[in-house]
Nucleic acid binder design. Structure first.
Lengths: 103, 103
DNA sequence: TTTGATAGTCATAAAATTCTGACTGGTTGA
DNA sequence: TCAACCAGTCAGAATTTTATGACTATCAAA
């Protein structure tokens, strides 16, 4: 058994976990697209060149677990799923804007 | 030769590179400590439990290459090096504060 | 001249992240 | 019934990131 999540993980910089979550591969792009409109799995796969299913699925799941995105099943024409920014996710929009301004 | 820095890397979300830079291991802690006072290598090693030389050295170098920290050799008693937040680095303070508020 | 503090580097090892390609399973239109 | 679209999962491989321990080099005090 490997040693993980040691107690001192809790004492680290408060922004660290959130920062790491947001910095994961494809996450900024997903977030960015989700700001303008709810995103869909296969649509992301087409819109983000180079992205792969697995990573997108993991990224979406993690963003949802963190409460930044929310899944909604749309019972329409081709029955699909939409991922919306939650209020918590929307609260990050200005942070992204600042980062973009400084990049 | 592995394929890197493809042209499409440039088209990604502008915040991505900065986000990734900031999220690297130990970086938020270094940044955090640097906000209150200039930091020193061996001092960081003692202040950050679990951190190792190599990673700290790499983190400091990357933060400096990104223009967020600046190295200053202090010609005093025990001749040492101090790492200061640059104006660009200081510009990130409010971003960290917002992230901490949302974490 | 040996000890301890300064600030690192280097090669290698281990761990975490990301990618690939195959596979599942539901719905819809031809 | 077959193909195509929907949204994924899974095992294993490749890549990237982080850690370990040994080593270098300068300076000052004992």
């Amino acid at each position: 058994m490997t040693i993980k999540n040691l107690p001192n993980e809790a004492e680290t910089c408060p922004a660290q976990a959130l920062l790491k979550l947001l910095a994961g591969k494809w996450k900024p792009e997903i977030f960015r697209l989700a700001v303008t409109a709810p995103v869909r799995f296969n649509s992301l796969l087409r819109q983000i060149p180079g992205a792969n299913k697995q990573s997108l699925a993991v990224a979406l799941r993690e963003l949802e677990e963190a409460g930044l995105l929310e899944k909604v099943v749309v019972k329409e024409k081709p029955l699909h799923v939409e991922h919306y920014l939650t209020p918590k996710g929307q609260a990050l929009i200005p942070v992204f804007q600042q980062l973009e301004g400084l990049a």
